[in-house]
Structure formats: C-alpha cells, structure tokens
C-alpha cells in the first residue's frame, strides 16, 4: 500500500467515523438513550479528520469529516439545550 492509498483510506475512515457519530445521534433520538458512554466516537472522528487534513490525498475527506462531526456535535448540543430548558423533557 502506498502512502497516498493509506491516507485515502484514513480519509475514508474519518468520514466513516463522522457518519457513525451522526448514526449514533439518530439512534439516541429514536431510542431516547443519551449515549454519553460513546463520547469518544466524535473525538476519534475529529482526530482522524485532523490527520487526514495533513495530506492532499485525504484532505477532502478530512475536511468533510471535520465539518460533519462539528455539525453533529452542534446539533446534539442544541437538542440537549432544548430538552433541558423544557419542563419534563429531559
């Protein structure tokens, strides 16, 4: 495996991890389970995304993963804020 192919795969992994973060958010919303124990999934996604950003072969996926994870975390934070501020919702 060349360096380029390796980073391409890493980029895909970063994108996959960010999609998995989004998937977990979906599961949490449908099952009303907080998934606090899975806090490391977005973190892993962010780390992989940052590594992927360093090489041209994976930069696009790295950027995509970084944006997707950030947006997912932001959506989760807004939902959490809303639930906490509504009486009896959290």
């Amino acid at each position: 495996m060349t360096k380029s192919t390796g980073f391409f795969t890493l980029g895909l992994l970063a994108a996959g991890a960010s999609l998995f973060t989004l998937f977990l958010l979906n599961i949490a919303l449908f099952t009303h389970t907080p998934f606090i124990g899975m806090w490391y999934v977005p973190l892993v996604s962010l780390v992989l995304a940052c590594i992927a950003l360093t090489q041209k072969a994976s930069r696009k996926y790295g950027l995509y993963a970084l944006l997707l994870t950030s947006c997912t975390v932001l959506i989760a934070a807004v939902i959490l804020w809303g639930l906490v501020s509504i009486n009896g919702a959290y």
Partner: peptide, 29 residues
C-alpha cells in the same frame, strides 16, 4: 458518503428545529 449523510441528517435536523421551536420563547413551558 453524501447519500448516507443526507439520510442520517434529515431526522436530527428536523428534531433540532422542532425542539428549538418549542424551547424558544418558552413556548412549551
């Protein structure tokens, strides 16, 4: 990746808008 993102993003975005609507101005409370 793009298809999965669209499929997985629909529900959280609508849910977030729904929650924000009820939480804003203390509508639900």
């Amino acid at each position: 990746i793009v298809l999965l993102t669209i499929i997985l993003a629909i529900s959280p975005i609508i849910y977030m808008l729904s929650i924000t609507y009820y939480a804003a101005n203390d509508r639900a409370n």
